[in-house]
């Protein structure tokens, strides 16, 4: 495992910590897109189904998968229960049907294998690449975002951005390629790039 992969995974963990910390300290979920959070839960559940049969392969991967599914479910639980009064569905209006539909079409057309787990894996990769759009859309509508929300989005974006040099290293040193993950990862990073630009220049 190279430094970029570890950096990416740590960045992902940090983003989760920032999000939960923000909600717990402010006792609200203002500025957080519920739709994006639901999309992430769908992403993790459909991708990490393999926990059921690859659990023994890598303790590291398995632990991270459990953390990602668990924290994502917990975030949604908090938004639906403890902090529900602070969630405003009127500003969280992105049409996620198109994101889910588009990801499903891509997954069905170009999986590595036409098996349930491979199609779901591919679906999760495509869906992850666009899952931040409701959040970015909400940010654009409200104009001003809390600093902590921008830190969250930055850390989440940095995670997939760091996977790109990881894939380059793996291609050079391990002859590893994963075209679906790489193309989707590049799209994901491009979607964040405008945000990264604003983050750095603000």
């Amino acid at each position: 495992m190279n430094i970029f992969r570890i950096g990416g995974d740590l960045s992902h963990l940090i983003s989760i910590f920032i999000l939960l910390h923000k909600m717990r300290t402010s006792k609200s979920c203002i500025g957080i897109s519920f739709k994006s959070q639901v999309l992430y839960l769908i992403v993790y559940v459909t991708r990490y189904l393999d926990l059921l049969w690859t659990f023994q392969h890598s303790t590291y991967n398995s632990l991270m998968k459990i953390i990602f599914i668990g924290s994502s479910a917990y975030t949604i639980y908090l938004m639906l229960n403890d902090f529900k009064p602070t969630h405003d569905p009127n500003i969280d209006t992105f049409k996620v049907e198109y994101l889910i539909g588009g990801s499903a079409i891509l997954a069905l057309l170009f999986p590595y294998k036409w098996t349930t787990s491979e199609v779901l894996w591919s679906f999760s990769i495509w869906l992850e690449s666009v899952a931040i759009l409701p959040q970015l859309f909400m940010l654009q509508r409200t104009g001003e975002a809390e600093t902590i929300t921008t830190h969250y989005i930055f850390a989440l974006g940095a995670y997939r951005a760091l996977y790109i040099p990881n894939w380059l290293c793996r291609y050079l040193f391990e002859n590893f390629t994963d075209p679906i993950a790489i193309i989707a990862g590049i799209i994901q990073t491009i979607l964040y790039s405008d945000f990264f630009y604003i983050y750095y220049t603000k």
Binding site: R5, H57, T177, A181
Partner: peptide, 10 residues
Amino acid sequence: KGDPETHDEL
């Protein structure tokens, strides 16, 4: 390595 049945990334 590279076997699509065993994705080793997150």
